[in-house]
Design a protein around this nucleic acid. Structure first.
Lengths: 244, 244
DNA sequence: GCACACTGTGTGCGCCATACACAGACCATA
DNA sequence: TATGGTCTGTGTATGGCGCACACAGTGTGC
């Protein structure tokens, strides 16, 4: 393969069809694959997504999928692309802080809608259309700031990492709020048992204090924005340092 | 199982043996399993770790492992526990910033030594001894600050997330520096092709500027500490806001 | 000295990703 | 309009995986 050639999946996602050549017409489109796979993943997590199950969902045989997707990993790329869809349109009236906050919340909401996204092993940096659109949207949030392009990239990545990381901590696959509460209760109980104040004073201190919040506890909206603001404060000082 | 009972793996990791009861003595210890599994993972990534391969490495049969580990996921817990080993001892002469920086760098070095750690799907919050020791160590870095225990936890998690996130971006499995450079070159080339300035001005701007640094490019030491300092600046403002 | 809990083993099941050969469908060209 | 070549979806097969289960031997506490 010429190295200038994109992998087949990316070609399909970007709509670079090329030719209408001899041979039967494709019976479906990668978007169909995406829809079927996302449906399965939403229902049963990423583990519920297998080539055969996706194919069965579409009413085709397993091997037919390989006409659209070179390998399982490519299936993940397709799922990601369609699960996130378009990035939010950011209100230009807001300042950078308001804009990147809206962006982060939209990102978080996407992850909350499709928790399996966090389970996808990231192999390559993003190149699909919607992924790039999200990147662009995040970068644009810093329009009007004195940050250089590279610094905007770093800042956006920082927020990106934060959202992913916190989502990872909270939404470990559990969709039912009751399950979350129960798991949290069990965790704090075990932690209390194991992290004795003599050996782990710091951990023990965090356990004494609050009402019901353990480590990966109810990392709810308030806590999300609180942590996010800490990150944004850091970016803020970088900005002000830039313009003395 | 009584809910107060820890899962078998955690019992083993904490050395809660209980009894010397009838029956043959165990032929090996979970640390042996850990060593074998880590060896395989270091060599061939997490995908190279299977129950049968680990067993073969030890000279035992596959099923014998299940006497020590209830499921594959537990194997991951064991690997994590032994791969990270003890947290760094933080110099109390340093201020919180120096301490948490040292902690973050130690964490980063651990991830760099064992990149497969990033591929482990996180199911449950940490409860194993060394994991808790790392938590404690990270919390202790904020000794002397006016931060409340819960805020220390948030701050530590923020740093934790940052290190994981950046490591995820850079060390995507590629151990050879040449491979990294090559992958980066290919990525920027493709990005340049796809992210045209008209549709993706922000992305294009980041591409024009620099010498050879693309998105997931050489996220080297300097860039690591730069981003980390942004995070720490955020924590700093939170601290100073606490004590007016 | 004996019962039995606990050890490691062997076999087997169902699922997975995917390589490969193939029959038919369709379009470009003649 | 005929036909060649190419692309489609399909069937079959392979090697790996996690793990359930039945089993035989071992050694400790009674």
């Amino acid at each position: 393969m010429d190295e200038n050639e994109l992998p087949r999946v990316l070609q399909q996602l970007w709509g670079i069809e090329g030719r209408s050549r001899p041979g039967p017409k494709p019976a479906f489109h990668i978007s169909d694959i995406a829809r079927a796979a996302i449906k399965l993943a939403d229902a049963g997590g990423l583990a519920a997504v297998s080539m055969s199950k996706v194919a069965a969902e579409l009413g085709f045989t397993t091997m037919s999928l390989y006409r659209y997707v070179d390998a399982k990993d490519d299936l993940y790329v397709v799922m990601l692309e369609y699960a996130f869809a378009e990035p939010p349109v950011l209100d230009p009236a807001l300042d950078w802080r308001g804009r990147i906050t809206a962006w982060a919340e939209a990102f978080r909401d996407g992850l909350r809608r499709h928790p399996w996204i966090l389970q996808i092993p990231i192999q390559d940096p993003p190149l699909s259309p919607n992924q790039l659109a999200w990147m662009e949207s995040g970068l644009d949030a810093f329009d009007g700031t004195p940050l250089a392009p590279q610094d905007r990239l770093s800042a956006m990545l920082l927020v990106n990492i934060y959202v992913r990381g916190t989502a990872q901590l909270t939404a470990n696959m559990l969709t039912e709020p009751d399950e979350v509460r129960e798991a949290d209760r069990l965790y704090t109980q075990r932690l209390t048992m194991l992290a004795t104040p003599d050996r782990f004073p710091g951990i023990a201190a965090t356990l004494e204090q609050p009402l019901d919040e353990g480590y990966a506890g109810d990392f709810d909206v308030a806590e999300f924005t609180f942590g996010l603001n800490t990150v944004l404060d850091g970016i803020h000082t970088r900005i002000t340092r830039q313009t003395p």
